[in-house]
Computed example of a mutant assay.
Amino acid sequence: MREISDGFVIAALDKDIGTFDTMTTALQFHMYQPVMLANTGQLGGSSAQAPFKAHHERQIAHVHGNNQAVISIFEVDLLAFKNTRKVDLPKEKKAAPAGFKGRTSA
């Protein structure tokens, strides 16, 4: 999937918020692209992360707590992690995973 997608969006209806938080953190690194998880407001646990170098910059949005209606608005540059060449970004990217050659442009 990481070779053909620029961002990964997960629509969830899951009670196991801790597991999904861990999965989102792992996926943003392994897929080397922004990962956005939207869980239902009844359960909470929505987040968006991207593989930036500084740990505190990786988490773009994070909402916990249940039975609440929340709208998170944020910008994500889906093309920032598409290739391995140096791109000027406001935040420094993590190094690409081993074997990453970039994604197709289709």
Score class of each variant (00 low, 15 high):
Thr84Glu: 03
Val70Gly: 02
Asn39Ala: 01
Gly18Thr: 05
Ala26Phe: 10
Leu79Lys: 15
Leu78Asp: 08
Ala80His: 13
Phe29Arg: 07
Lys93Ala: 03
Ser72Trp: 00
Pro97Cys: 04
Thr104Tyr: 06
Ala106Phe: 10
His62Met: 10
Ala38Pro: 11
Val63Trp: 00
Gly99Cys: 02
Met23Arg: 12
Gly41Pro: 01
Ile71Ala: 10
Val87Arg: 14
Thr84His: 03
Thr19Arg: 15
Thr19Met: 08
Lys91Trp: 07
Lys86Gln: 05
Gln49Glu: 03
Gly41Asn: 01
Thr19His: 11
Thr19Phe: 09
Thr19Val: 13
Gly45Trp: 01
Thr24Arg: 15
Thr22Ile: 02
Glu75Pro: 15
Ala98Tyr: 00
Leu89Asn: 09
Phe52Asp: 02
Ala50Asn: 11
His55Trp: 05
Gly7Val: 13
Arg85Tyr: 12
Ala12Asn: 08
Asp88Val: 13
Thr22Ser: 12
Pro90Tyr: 12
Asn67Lys: 15
Gly18Ile: 04
Phe20Arg: 04
Val35Leu: 03
Val35His: 01
Arg58Trp: 07
Phe8Glu: 00
Val87His: 07
Thr22Phe: 07
Lys86Leu: 00
Gly18Ala: 03
Leu37His: 05
Phe100Ala: 08
Gln28Ala: 01
Gly102Pro: 15
Gly102Cys: 05
Ala12Ile: 05
Ala98Val: 01
Gln59Asn: 13
Asn39Arg: 02
Ile17Thr: 14
Asn39Ser: 00
Gln68Tyr: 04
Pro34Cys: 00
Arg103Ser: 11
Glu92Pro: 09
Val35Met: 02
Ala106Thr: 10
Tyr32Asp: 02
Val35Ile: 04
Gly45Cys: 00
Asp21Leu: 02
His56Gly: 11
Lys93Asp: 01
Ala95Tyr: 06
Ser5Met: 12
Tyr32Cys: 06
Asn83Leu: 04
Thr104Ser: 06
Asp88Cys: 07
Gly18Tyr: 01
Leu43Ser: 04
Val9Thr: 06
Ile71Phe: 05
Val63Thr: 08
Pro90Val: 14
Ser5Ile: 15
Val63Met: 01
Arg58Leu: 06
Met23Ile: 13
Ala98Ile: 05
Glu3Ser: 10
Ala12Pro: 14
Ile71Glu: 05
Ala48Ile: 08
His64Gly: 08
Phe100His: 12
Lys101Asp: 06
Val76Arg: 06
Lys94Gln: 14
Lys93Trp: 05
Met31Gln: 08
Lys94Pro: 04
Gly44Pro: 07
Ala48Pro: 13
Asn39His: 02
Ser105Ile: 05
Gln59Asp: 09
Ala98Phe: 01
